[in-house]
Design a protein around this nucleic acid. Structure first.
Lengths: 216, 216
DNA sequence: AAGCTTATGTTGACGGTGTCAAGATAACGA
DNA sequence: TCGTTATCTTGACACCGTCAACATAAGCTT
């Protein structure tokens, strides 16, 4: 990609015009924020730097996001959409055994987190959730991602992959907790690094899944 | 406790003296910081507020902590010491089956996190570890806490409680990951709350531990 | 006891942050 | 064409971490 000019994406109105009005500031801010997020992390992401990078005054973003928090929520939102798309790809595969799907899901989750550490931190970190500052639109995108976990757990139980005698909700809390925890240990650089991913996933899947007569 | 006067703990020098020199600022700052941490969370903990609370000028703390980071590391340090003491109590019990010890350890870990959410966040959160800003003294206190996890895992494997065919390090990464993940989900208020603790722990322990002929 | 050194505490200042208020500019609809 | 509204601007405020320069007192040496 040949170095997008963030100052002017300008798709909706006149295609180009060094104007007082930017034209498409909201989405421009979002893409620039994603870049800044990757470069400097959550701590380094400031509205002022962002505005500066986009070539607009400090307070311009406030006409598109009520808050810094709203900006963060919007970014997280995109993260959930992308992850949900990834997850659906895994689930909608045909001719793949339940266990392999489980394996792929587990592995995919960890890799998504490891590939987008700062984004993951925004999606599932305290910044947004701890102080109940999630936007209603973010909640609407995020909650399905939560309940998907429960649905899949129930299905895996029915397929005999996961133990049937455990409460579905508890079981999905524990399995998700495991993925979340491993992801966090990786991201925060505690006690685990990327080179362990494959083996850790394999180990976890072995622990959780029962032996099935069909497939691996 | 009758409302400790943080302005003057003054243990080492003259017991009381409204003096220019505080006498025991470092430890006073630490205890006040712990209070402030609980009240306002990590985000709300500022050096200026802390100094103000203790009744000292903004920059006085800098004579006892090079950095805000050093202050945070010192707090985390205390957290590790306390947790390690808790953990040792569990391990050093006699007449308790391995499985019950495992159960207690798991449950104790989650409860410690749930009871001290902000402290836990400091101990295992990105604030300190992500940008490699941990003090050397913090590392010295924290690492044993990490390796304890591995040692215990190995022991549990030998006792037949955890599967023997898994790599000890991977297994302890996964089990610790699970505890860490559940703790985080609880702390950040995502998808789980305190009322689920007992059941989640029970579920996790059931999943991980093998059936033993002795004990429950 | 006097004086020098060092530890500790103080005020002032700088650059950074999020955010509000008031004003400038331009797009849009009647 | 004119008012309304959306958008963008500068100015200001209250925080924050931190450095420099200075004030005070404790402690050691002589």
């Amino acid at each position: 990609m040949p170095e997008k000019d963030l100052t002017h994406t300008a798709k909706k109105p006149k295609p180009n015009k060094a104007a007082y009005h930017h034209g498409d500031l909201r989405s421009t801010l979002l893409t620039a924020a994603n870049v800044l997020l990757k470069e400097t992390g959550i701590e380094g992401l400031s509205l002022r730097k962002l505005a500066d990078k986009v070539g607009v005054s400090r307070t311009a973003p406030y006409h598109h996001f009520k808050d810094k928090n709203q900006l963060l929520c919007a970014i997280a939102e995109q993260g959930f959409v992308r992850w949900q798309s990834d997850a659906n790809h895994i689930f909608n595969q045909t001719h793949v055994s339940p266990k392999d799907k489980y394996r792929q899901f587990f592995h995919g989750y960890i890799c998504y987190a490891a590939d987008n550490p700062e984004l993951y931190d925004l999606m599932f970190g305290r910044t947004i959730w701890k102080q109940n500052s999630a936007t209603s639109t973010l909640r609407e995108v995020a909650y399905p991602s939560f309940s998907l976990q429960v649905d899949m757990t129930k299905q895996w139980q029915q397929q005999g992959l996961l133990p049937n005698n455990e409460h579905t909700l508890r079981l999905s809390q524990v399995t998700w907790g495991t993925m979340h925890g491993i992801a966090r240990l990786l991201i925060d650089g505690i006690y685990a690094d990327r080179s362990h991913i494959d083996e850790m996933c394999e180990c976890a899947v072995n622990l959780f899944t029962l032996n099935m007569n069909s497939s691996t």
